[in-house]
């Protein structure tokens, strides 16, 4: 890694750390407790940014998949795959924190609501993405296949959402936003979103770097074997 990268990474890590500390302080000290749902509403400040990041991650995968199929540069494949990894982890967190919030507020862990169901289907699609990648017989194939799934899977998202929305819906937003979002709440949410977006960028850079490194090592190995 050259000096430029190290500097950029240090700045990003610093920024991420500072934002995360600020976010935690705002969530637990600064922001007033919401009147209707009480203290549990504080999950919202991490749940929503995590959900946002997972959608962002799959969108980035969609774009890098197209770029990979077009340019055939290994860097785009590395970014797409790293982004799916981070996206799946964050979607898992959405699916865990959602029910934890729903249980005390609605009295149930799970409901087949549009948002919840779409997240679940998304999670399943990108788990399949990672599976195909690890089951593909050679690296070039893995890259092409996963790019195709990255594109097809993302196009599926709005269709799933529309379908499930018509199927049955129970609006969680209506409950969260009851009484509106006061300025301190909005501020806190925005800081949290910023903190998680920086965390996402950091994780993807790190993970994509490793993937490129892995591919390089594999290439060197096969060159040596010849």
């Amino acid at each position: 890694m050259n000096g430029n990268h190290t500097l950029r990474n240090s700045i990003l890590w610093g920024l991420g750390f500072a934002l995360m500390v600020a976010a935690l302080c705002m969530v637990f000290v600064y922001v007033p407790t919401e009147k209707h749902t009480g203290i549990i509403q504080r999950i919202f400040y991490f749940h929503v940014p995590v959900a946002w990041v997972s959608f962002l991650a799959f969108f980035i995968t969609f774009l890098s998949s197209i770029l990979y199929l077009w340019k055939r540069e290994i860097k785009w494949d590395a970014i797409a795959c790293a982004s799916v990894e981070v996206g799946v982890i964050f979607t898992t967190l959405v699916l865990i924190t959602g029910p934890i919030w729903a249980k005390p507020v609605w009295g149930i862990w799970w409901t087949w609501d549009a948002r919840l169901t779409t997240s679940l289907v998304l999670w399943l699609i990108y788990i399949a993405y990672l599976l195909v990648r690890s089951f593909a017989t050679e690296p070039a194939r893995a890259a092409r296949y996963s790019a195709v799934i990255g594109i097809v899977g993302f196009i599926d998202v709005p269709i799933v959402f529309i379908t499930v929305n018509l199927w049955r819906t129970q609006h969680p937003t209506a409950i969260i936003f009851e009484g509106g979002l006061t300025p301190p709440m909005l501020m806190t949410l925005l800081v949290c979103i910023a903190a998680f977006t920086v965390l996402y960028i950091l994780l993807v850079i790190q993970s994509a770097g490793l993937k490129t490194m892995e591919a390089d090592i594999k290439r060197l190995r096969s060159m040596k074997a010849e």
Binding site: R42, I43, F46, I100, P104
Partner: peptide, 15 residues
């Protein structure tokens, strides 16, 4: 301070 356990659980899982 009801539901503190749920809140704690959520943040613990995330971290």
């Amino acid at each position: 301070m009801e539901n503190l356990g749920y809140l704690l659980a959520a943040y613990t899982v995330i971290w």
